[in-house]
Computed example of a mutant assay.
Amino acid sequence: MKSLLTLALLTVSNLFMTFAWYGHLQFKKLPWFSKLGIVGIVLVSWGLAFFEYVFQVPANRIGFEENGGPFSLFQLKVIQEVISLTVFTLCAVYVFKTDKLGWNHVLGFGLLVAAVYVIFRKW
């Protein structure tokens, strides 16, 4: 159960992170946001990043093995990176509609899955 909760919280966290880091690049499509200067954009992004941390910190605390969770620190980081790239890709392709998923992206994700395997394997 802790592993599923950790994964869910990391996914929600990464949704906020993606919009905080890259969503502002789409603001020009929204009339009110298109008039914001860089300070306004930074403040909006910080506001979104706050919610990233609201979900990220509990995810790591719940998931960390020294707090009774199932994951080591390295495992948490690799999981976070895979979720981050997955969420980013889905947002870029289906929400922002700025990029198309190419064979090189699929190959890269395959290598990330291999990284997860290597990190989780008990040698």
Rank of each mutant, 00 (worst) to 15 (best):
F55E: 11
F120E: 02
I41K: 15
V95I: 15
A92V: 02
F64P: 00
V12W: 04
W32H: 10
A59H: 04
E65F: 05
L85M: 13
F19H: 15
L5I: 15
R61Q: 14
N60E: 13
K29I: 03
M17P: 00
F19P: 02
Q80W: 05
E66G: 06
G40Y: 06
R121G: 00
I83T: 13
V57H: 09
W21R: 14
V116D: 00
F96H: 05
L30N: 15
Y22R: 15
Y94I: 01
Y53I: 04
A92Y: 12
Q56I: 02
V93F: 09
Y53H: 12
W21Q: 13
F27G: 09
G108A: 08
V87H: 08
S45L: 02
V116A: 13
H105Y: 08
S72D: 03
F88K: 12
G63A: 05
F27S: 12
S45V: 06
V116L: 14
L43R: 12
T89P: 06
G23R: 09
W32P: 08
K77D: 11
L48Y: 10
M17K: 07
T86V: 12
V116M: 09
L4Q: 10
G23A: 07
H105Q: 09
R61L: 12
I79A: 11
Y117L: 11
N14Q: 12
V78H: 00
V78P: 00
L48Q: 08
F74T: 12
K122Q: 11
N67W: 10
V78L: 07
F55P: 07
F88M: 11
K28H: 15
F88A: 15
V87W: 06
A115G: 12
S13K: 07
T6K: 05
V57C: 03
A114V: 14
W32M: 12
M1I: 05
P31C: 03
